[in-house]
């Protein structure tokens, strides 16, 4: 604010001129002031003296009116301050401002609910993909078990038959054994083992050993000797029927002088494992 600190009491102040020019208390006195101020300056009443005089002045009607007005002012100011500081912060807010506030808030709410919906969708898709992964994992696990059973790389157990071929004359050859394996497979045997040592899988070959009729046969890489005990897991009834039917394994073996016993225990355990199959040449064709 333009100010004249060095001049002690300039009378017609340009800085305060506009302030008194438009309708407040001293306005009407602006014109008469000049003359009186010129004289009052000679009488040299300072502001403090005037103030003290005013404070000591005897109460009159005008003073009372001024006091009432000031009381009104103080009352209104206190009320307004209270209203602004009250618990409801928007009580004194203008309607336009309230409308704008409301619009801002509802826009913010829209934004928030959109974000909420997006996040929910993300969460749902993540949960779904987790479920899918779990299902795929379970599927893969089941396939792995089935393939392991087929490849003979795990021990298995289940209902089935135990076929014992006694061969006192050492005349059972690979032909009869292969026949027996084929019959069992035909009847739906899921896992076959011979003499607790040789697991019969897809790659297993059956041979006659070094010489015919020495009571030794080869099954895969294992050598088996009589009596040959064939354990097979599958439906026991079907398997035993496949062994016993006319012209089947029992007849074949009895022709060459052996005997066949079929036993159906509650549980057949196959513990021997086939050697890990390694593939050098074969590749999956697409």
């Amino acid at each position: 604010m333009p100010d004249h600190p060095s001049t002690p009491d300039p009378v017609p102040e340009p800085a305060t001129g506009p302030a008194t020019g438009s309708g407040s208390g001293p306005v009407r006195h602006t014109e008469p002031v000049h003359d009186r101020r010129e004289t009052s300056r000679t009488s040299a009443r300072s502001g403090r003296e005037v103030l003290l005089t005013a404070l000591r002045r005897r109460p009159g009607r005008g003073q009372t009116v001024a006091g009432v007005l000031l009381a009104l002012l103080g009352f209104a100011a206190a009320v307004q301050v209270n209203a602004v500081n009250s618990d409801t912060p928007y009580a004194g807010t203008r309607r336009d401002d309230l409308v704008q506030l409301l619009q801002t808030l509802s826009a913010a709410q829209d934004r928030s609910s959109r974000q909420l919906a997006e996040l929910r969708a993300t969460r749902d898709s993540l949960v779904a993909s987790t479920d899918q992964r779990a299902a795929a994992l379970e599927e893969a696990q089941a396939q792995l078990e089935a393939v392991q059973v087929l490849a003979g790389t795990v021990g298995v157990a289940g209902p089935g038959v135990v076929i014992t071929i006694d061969d006192p004359t050492d005349s059972v050859s690979s032909l009869e054994l292969l026949n027996a394996i084929q019959e069992l497979r035909d009847a739906g045997a899921e896992a076959i083992e011979i003499n607790d040592t040789a697991r019969v899988v897809a790659q297993t070959a059956v041979g006659d050993g070094t010489s015919l009729s020495d009571g030794r046969l080869t099954v895969g890489s294992e050598t088996v000797t009589a009596p040959y005990v064939i354990e097979a897991i599958g439906n026991p009834d079907t398997l035993s029927a496949a062994v016993a039917f006319r012209g089947g394994l029992t007849d074949d073996v009895e022709v060459v002088g052996g005997t066949v016993t079929v036993d159906t225990p509650d549980e057949v355990r196959i513990t021997s494992l086939a050697p890990e199959a390694e593939t050098d040449f074969v590749q999956p064709s697409t």
Binding site: S24, H29, S40, R61, A66, L72
Partner: peptide, 25 residues
């Protein structure tokens, strides 16, 4: 009202205060 009051106070210090003017203003 504050403005009027300050104006009145200034007028008082200028020794030109008048109650009637104050009330009206």
């Amino acid at each position: 009202a504050l403005d009027a009051t300050f104006g009145a106070f200034r007028a008082l210090l200028d020794d030109i205060f008048d109650e009637k003017v104050f009330v009206v203003s």
